[in-house]
């Protein structure tokens, strides 16, 4: 399985560390359902069949976080983008 690092180029997956679902977002700590929302955020994950957006850390390379789109059925990697390009919009709010 090869991951196309947007900074380094195509690299073997052994250079990366997997950090799970990239679609979960930290809920508000002050909302009325904060406890349930945080339980969900920390513990519950879908087990999708098909395309999945997930976090990979390029430990053996540029030390950047990536959001990789992977097909869970056959490990086909559709693409990878810097995580900061995905999460910077969230940071601003």
């Amino acid at each position: 399985m090869r991951i196309p690092c947007p900074h380094c180029g195509p690299r073997t997956h052994e250079e990366f560390t997997y950090y799970g679902d990239a679609t979960v977002r930290r809920p508000s700590a002050t909302g009325p359902d904060a406890e349930a929302a945080f339980y969900d955020y920390v513990y519950t994950r879908d087990n999708p069949c098909g395309l999945h957006r997930e976090l990979w850390f390029h430990q053996g390379g540029c030390h950047e976080w990536l959001v990789v789109e992977r097909d869970t059925r056959n490990h086909d990697i559709k693409g990878a983008v810097p995580a900061r390009s995905v999460f910077s919009a969230d940071d601003a709010t």
Binding site: C8, R11, E14, E15, G60, G61, C62
Partner: peptide, 10 residues
Amino acid sequence: VAVTTASHLA
């Protein structure tokens, strides 16, 4: 330049 691994070493 490549930042990579050689024999599993960074």
